[in-house]
Design a protein around this nucleic acid. Structure first.
Lengths: 334, 334
DNA sequence: GTGAAAGCGCTAACAT
DNA sequence: ATGTTAGCGCTTTCAC
């Protein structure tokens, strides 16, 4: 900046004024400074400025998602990016991998870089370590999963409701033996989905001891193995509710291998790419990751703009999409 | 930091030493400072430090990919993140959307934030605007597409070769009328894929005037419409080579709609999720986005570690995966 | 083993 | 309309 000032024959503050579009600079000076900056390929150092700037904003935001190569996360990320771009804000993205250490590490990396706001998917038991940061006024919005041990904004799907929707759909099609393939119990959304599933069965008067449940599934392979074991058991289910997209894919593979994909009903929580092109098409309870990302980002920016209203829990509705697999009726025995 | 120093009853420099794990501090002092930092929830400001630090590294990297919600980009991103994490480096991710303005905007945003290195997918005609930055010593690695108007490292798939592979596969299965569904000509990889396609046809002695080609396809819908028009034409193809994943999906939808998915052969450049679960399975020339991301990141870190070797073009091989759709033979007329 | 002073690139506050 | 001075939170250099 000093060099630019020298070349343009003005003081540094004038350069600063031109760069930041502040008033009270003559057109001629603006031109000279702009020209000098161009000649020297000057790029203002945002961080140096923020050190002194009144609002101390880095125009940077930290985003922690399940994994940047997971389609759900990707859509959330994209929505956040779009909102951030409108505000001239860049986004740091990290993958959680449902690993507590990664969560700590990522948050700490964000904080050391003085992000203006945080959008987080978490796995740790409590996010109370964020309390000091919240007190400092940094907006933190939790996405996909709600926070624990702390109060802050969150944007989540209605997991219990969506699971009930899926379960009810299977019951409506005549199933009584509906299996539940769940993720790890440590994951809040997994517990919510199980709750929705069980409550819906309860309302229908299905004895839960008749309900095959497998939990702790976290990837395709474990889900595939669990499905095979389930169908090989003495009292196999006629329908499956799989509570997460990776699990769903494993389940589909297992059903294909066993040649049962046309007679075992399947509803997935979470949409998967190309679900409509499978045969049968995959019936899902779809979340709306685009909306989740957008609302979370809007929340952050509203907070940064001074919104001091109490922390809010925003619920993004899920939607049942019938594509075939969920409308299969049980063979005879029903 | 001043507060921590005061609380611990030491000078600021000592705090600095403790934070950065520098030698010459007594164990007792380290303990006192660490304790004080914890009590005050002190987070060192990385940027303030970098202002003065000798190497001036922000431990930050800028990544520009097609779109963060595209599976190819997501995998590249994830590989870059993993490599970056090992180096304590955070990554800014942005989406290009094949838009020149976004390219400029993103690069400029990265530069203003003083990233240590850049990993870029580009669309502009020339990246010569990066020359000053390169001279300054910032490592820039181009991924997926090679740079123009500038010399720098790149990591790309062998597009022409992959296209030839796909085309040869179709010819081998008896096809003579193979259609080409291409992306915009402005995109370097699109041109390379077309070249590989045409060269392979040439080697087989197929007259190129018999080759139906549609270019400028950029999304599912345009590809779907193009496929329908193609099959409705007086001399429809018996096989299709689709040169990009979104285009492939549009093509599959069209073939399904027309009920031709079991008699028109299809090979896709780029894998798509669940391609093996479609019926017929989708034959693809798969790229290796994980490898592309990893190699690009390694290149950046090698440069940051002082590697001054000439700019290199790293080619990541593609691989033909037979899954059914590419092995369909032409009906009679062949 | 520790601290004081200077300065990184910038902006705030107050000149002029 | 423009320049000067101080200082943001840190690391450097050098002294103790």
């Amino acid at each position: 900046m000093r060099h630019v000032a020298a070349l343009a024959g003005v003081g540094v503050k004038t350069v600063s004024r031109v760069i930041n579009g502040e008033p009270n600079v003559s057109a001629a000076t603006i031109a000279r400074v702009t020209q000098a900056a161009r000649t020297l390929d000057y790029q203002p150092d945002l961080h140096a400025g923020n050190l002194r700037r009144a609002d101390g904003r880095t125009r940077t935001l930290g985003l922690l998602v399940g994994s940047v190569d997971n389609p759900f996360s990707g859509t959330v990320h994209r929505a956040v990016e779009d909102a951030a771009r409108e505000h001239g804000v860049a986004v740091f993205a990290s993958s959680l991998d449902d690993d507590r250490d990664r969560e700590q590490e990522a948050v700490s990396a964000f904080l050391r870089r003085r992000v203006d706001g945080l959008i987080l998917t978490t796995v740790s038991e409590s996010q109370d370590y964020l309390a000091p940061e919240l007190r400092r006024g940094t907006p933190v919005v939790f996405v996909d999963r709600e926070p624990a041990g702390i109060t802050s904004d969150s944007v989540v799907s209605d997991n219990a409701d969506g699971a009930a929707l899926a379960t009810g759909h299977l019951l409506k099609h005549g199933h009584r033996r509906v299996a539940f393939l769940g993720d790890r119990e440590a994951i809040q959304t997994a517990r919510e989905r199980r709750r929705g599933f069980l409550e819906e069965l309860g309302r229908a008067g299905v004895a839960t001891r008749d309900v095959p449940m497998v939990e702790g599934l976290h990837d395709e392979e474990s889900a595939r193995a669990a499905t095979i074991a389930l169908l090989d058991s003495p009292a196999p289910p006629t329908a499956i509710f799989s509570s997460q997209n990776l699990v769903t894919i494993g389940t589909i593979r297992a059903l294909r291998e066993l040649g049962r994909h046309r007679d075992i009903a399947l509803v997935s929580f979470d949409d998967v790419p190309l679900a409509d092109l499978l045969e049968p098409g995959l019936t899902v309870v779809a979340q709306d990751p685009q909306q989740i990302g957008r609302l979370a980002a809007e929340r952050v920016f509203a907070r940064l703009d001074g919104d001091r209203s109490p922390a809010a829990r925003t619920i993004v509705p899920t939607r049942l999409i019938e594509r075939g697999s969920g409308e299969i009726r049980p063979r005879q025995e029903g």
